[in-house]
């Protein structure tokens, strides 16, 4: 492969107080790659993807995103965050703004787009996630399955190069999970670089280019979905898969 990785992590270490939450995590992610991160709760998988847009600060090692190293330099952090979209487990929509305002807030104030351009983009994205009629409602008026789709549209409005998903379906009814996964599948097929923390093994099997398995803050095993689900090597992985499948 001649292309450069868009995300480079080299021996990333992080502690919460005494608790060693990330241990020597080293991963490269290529542009357009879809990487699914799985693992038991408390294994550090959420912390890992939150380090990539510096919602968490790593203490050792190096994280380089799109040729910019994450450091304490605020200009680097701002530049990185413009290029990374994120969808949270609780979606974190802004309750005091309408759906349209939620989506146009960052493009207008960070990218300095005109209101018309931002709204056009927002409506296009709402179309894409299948809820064009909800533009003028407030988040409190949306159903459970509509909220994550707005959150995805909000992140995409900044035209990011990378999308991070932090368990976007774990707070949803089984029926609504499919709606959201369909949107994510469509996004993956369109060539977006994605890092997804999820417990949806079906999604991982179908969409992922690569699966990372985290345990105790370490990447225990990684590989293609076929390898991972059919022939896991590490005993910890086998145990995990036997419990959930």
């Amino acid at each position: 492969m001649t292309r450069e990785p868009i995300i480079i992590c080299r021996s990333v270490n992080k502690w919460f107080g005494e608790f060693h939450v990330l241990r020597d995590v080293s991963v490269d992610v290529m542009p357009q790659e879809v990487v699914v991160v799985i693992g038991p709760s408390g294994s550090g998988k959420s912390t890992f993807i939150r380090c990539i847009n510096r919602l968490e600060v790593h203490q050792e090692g190096q994280i380089i995103v799109d040729d910019i190293e994450l450091s304490h330099d605020v200009r680097n952090i701002a530049a990185i965050r413009r290029e990374i979209g994120m969808v949270f487990q609780q979606f974190n929509l802004f309750p005091h703004l309408t759906v349209l305002q939620n989506i146009t807030l960052a493009p207008m104030n960070v990218r300095h787009w005109s209101k018309d351009k931002a709204e056009e983009k927002a409506r296009e994205l709402l179309d894409r996630v299948g809820i064009p009629e909800q533009a003028d409602k407030y988040p409190g008026q949306l159903s459970g399955g509509q909220q994550p789709r707005v959150a995805i549209a909000r992140a995409l409005a900044m035209e990011p190069k990378i999308m991070l998903f932090d368990e976007p379906t774990s707070a949803l009814d089984p029926e609504m999970i499919k709606e959201v996964l369909d949107v994510m599948k469509e996004l993956a097929q369109s060539g977006m670089t994605m890092l997804v923390v999820t417990h949806e093994m079906g999604f991982a099997r179908e969409v992922a280019d690569r699966v990372l398995f985290f345990d105790m803050g370490r990447i225990v095993e990684q590989g293609t979905p076929e390898h991972f689900f059919e022939n896991p090597e590490h005993p910890r992985t086998k145990l995990f898969l036997s419990q959930i499948l």
Partner: peptide
């Protein structure tokens, strides 16, 4: 706290 994180993740100053 999630509201602050969402704002930061979107790149707001």
């Amino acid at each position: 706290q999630g509201q602050l994180e969402a704002a930061r993740a979107l790149g707001l100053s």
